[in-house]
Nucleic acid binder design. Structure first.
Length: 260
DNA sequence: CATAATGTTTAAGA
DNA sequence: GTCTTAAACATTAT
């Protein structure tokens, strides 16, 4: 489930490969991986991983030859760092075999993400029209950006050009914690509610990272561990309800997230 | 078998 | 042109 907290975990995983040299690039799904064996051999093999960087849901492996590998995880992708002698996980699309007896595996069941060679990170962000990372934003800009969009608040939170990193399920969690109905129009929110959103955005994402994006370890009053229609709300006596917002499944408590 | 699923891009509508 | 919404994409699990 790769949203900001998940990708941050992968970034830490990739960080274990820092200063290792890439001995080999194994491409196991040619259709999916946008790197030809020639390019891999010429531009990636033999280079050193100098850093792992993240913005929103995108992850970069920075190499010492002024380029980098950029990856996106779609809905089912993940990154794993394992001893090379272990077999690559199922659905592995591409593996970087390192000189420290470990390998980094890009894994995905479906084909919605990508992994490719990227030059300068800044120009990539511009091309993608990617907004600032949800954890880097100051309160004022966070609120200003949301106000610019005239849509339901959940749709605005999911807009990567406004704020990068919040996906479908974390938008639900943030709105649940803030006590705001997901269909509320951005124009109908009060200043107080915007501030609460900012506060919960930070808290929810940081908590998720601290728990290594493992929902079973989330606090008891979070929505995510019991994101199911009809279950009891952890904050009041209401029952969790499922609706569609902008075409996506959305869970909320009708009793503590009242519509205006 | 039909439906929904954490994602982004596109095409269409206002 | 600009902004917003809905459909399309690929594959698996229920």
């Amino acid at each position: 489930m790769p949203e900001l907290p998940d990708v941050e975990i992968y970034r830490k995983e990739a960080g274990k490969a820092r200063d290792a040299t890439i001995d080999e690039v194994k491409i196991t799904d040619k259709e999916f991986i946008d790197i030809t064996p020639q390019v891999a051999g010429k531009s990636i093999k033999g280079t050193k991983i100098t850093n792992a960087a993240r913005r929103g849901k995108y992850l970069w492996l920075e190499l010492d030859h002024q380029h980098s590998v950029v990856m996106h995880f779609g809905m089912t992708g993940l990154l794993q760092y394992t001893p090379t002698k272990e077999e690559a996980p199922e659905y592995t699309k591409c593996s970087f075999v390192l000189d420290n007896k470990h390998s980094l595996h890009y894994i995905s069941k479906r084909k919605l993400g990508f992994l490719k060679l990227s030059g300068d990170i800044g120009s990539f962000i511009q091309e993608q029209d990617l907004g600032p990372d949800a954890l880097e934003l100051k309160e004022e800009e966070f609120i200003d950006r949301l106000k610019k969009k005239r849509s339901m608040i959940k749709t605005a939170l999911n807009d990567q050009s406004l704020i990068a990193g919040i996906g479908n399920i974390y938008a639900d969690e943030i709105l649940y914690q803030a006590g705001i109905h997901p269909k509320t129009g951005t124009g109908d929110l009060t200043e107080k509610e915007f501030k609460e959103l900012y506060k919960q955005n930070k808290k929810v994402l940081e908590t998720a990272i601290e728990k290594e994006a493992d929902v079973s370890r989330f606090p008891e009053d979070y929505l995510l561990p019991h994101r199911e229609e009809g279950t009891d709300c952890s904050k009041c006596s209401g029952k969790i309800k499922k609706i569609k917002v902008g075409g996506r499944g959305t869970y909320y408590c009708p009793s503590c997230q009242k519509k205006k």
